[in-house]
Simulated scan of single mutants.
Amino acid sequence: MDRLFKIHARSHRVIDHIIPPKQDKEKMPTTKEEKELWSTLDAMVLQWIYATISHDLLYTILEPDTTAMEAWNKLRDIFQDNRHSRAVTLEYDFTHVDMADFSNISAYCQHLKSLSDQLKNVGSPVNNNRLVLQLVFGLTEPYNSVVTLISQNDPLPQFYQARSMLTLEEVDLVKKVAHSSSSGMVARYSNGPHDISDHASSHRNNTGRKRNQNRSYNGRKNRSNNGGCGGEKGSIRTSNNRGIGQQPTGQQPPINIPWYGGQPWPWMAPWAP
């Protein structure tokens, strides 16, 4: 981060506000106008510093009437305090980086490079070979072919070259996964129309069977209900049969028909007259 800030300050020609200028080449402001311009530019650089740090650090170094160089030096002391303890912690984090903890190759490489830069800031720089070896060491199994390719190079490629190789391999892996998924879907639904027709036929058969069962059930129910009425009718017919030739209890006597022998017609109910 400090290097980016230095680049930004140098591009605006205010690098001497955070790094002491060399007296033999640079001149300190002498006139009133130069001092006023220097004060204005120094306030601008100080504002940049305050805008790029966390609130905790801001409240730690914030003091009235401070200069950009004083704020810069305080931040340097804070980050370089207990350098050996920081180096131990960063070294542990650097050697235990695993790609499985990151979403993609770019995030994995960025984290490794950030740890390498932090180790350099505390006086424990990491050379290119160690950085590349740690990069391939933390990769997952799908990248084994690239790991072998990078490890067999002598000398080892630069970090940015190894990162580029891994990025291309990641793109190929994504394409293979997408292709295999689409192929599986095509194979699964290749006989789709037949499966659909079979399913529709099975559905119609099941529906027909259910309708037949309902009809059978309703028929049995109706016959059961009509059985009561049929029983009444049966009793009526039985009474009619008993009424032929004899007088049922509580009924009118039959009409005498001379040519029929005085008996009613068989199909006539006793109470018809």
Score class of each variant (00 low, 15 high):
E169L: 02
F94V: 00
L119W: 05
Y160T: 08
T238G: 09
N128V: 09
K176V: 13
Y143P: 08
S183G: 03
N240G: 07
L46A: 09
S124C: 14
Y50D: 02
H8F: 15
C229W: 11
I150Y: 09
G230P: 00
G245W: 00
P258A: 05
D154F: 02
P20D: 08
R163N: 06
D93K: 15
I7G: 07
T40K: 15
K74L: 12
Y160C: 05
W265I: 02
C109E: 01
P273V: 01
A100I: 13
R76I: 07
V177G: 05
L131S: 08
N129W: 05
I19V: 15
K25E: 11
G234V: 02
G192F: 15
N225R: 12
W38L: 05
D98R: 15
P64M: 07
I61F: 10
V136W: 01
V122Q: 06
V146R: 11
S202W: 03
D77S: 13
E33H: 09
S183H: 11
A178M: 10
P266G: 03
R163I: 00
Q134G: 10
V122R: 04
M165K: 06
M69Y: 04
P125W: 14
L46D: 00
I105F: 01
N222R: 15
Y160V: 08
L119I: 09
I244Y: 11
T249S: 09
L166R: 02
N191C: 10
D195C: 12
D117T: 13
K22A: 13
G192M: 13
E169H: 12
R86Q: 13
N206Y: 13
T140P: 02
V174C: 06
R188P: 05
S145Q: 12
M99V: 00
D16P: 00
K27C: 03
R223S: 06
K176D: 10
S182R: 15
S54Y: 09
A162I: 02
I18Y: 08
I257H: 02
P266M: 03
H12N: 12
T89G: 06
L115K: 01
R86C: 03
E33V: 12
E169Q: 14
R13C: 09
Q161C: 04
Q134Y: 15
A100C: 08
P273T: 00
T66R: 03
K120Y: 12
D56Y: 14
H194I: 14
R76G: 10
Q110G: 07
V171I: 08
G228P: 00
F137A: 11
Y50R: 08
S235I: 03
K22F: 12
E141N: 06
N240H: 13
Y160H: 07
W259K: 04
C229L: 13
N240S: 09
S235Y: 11
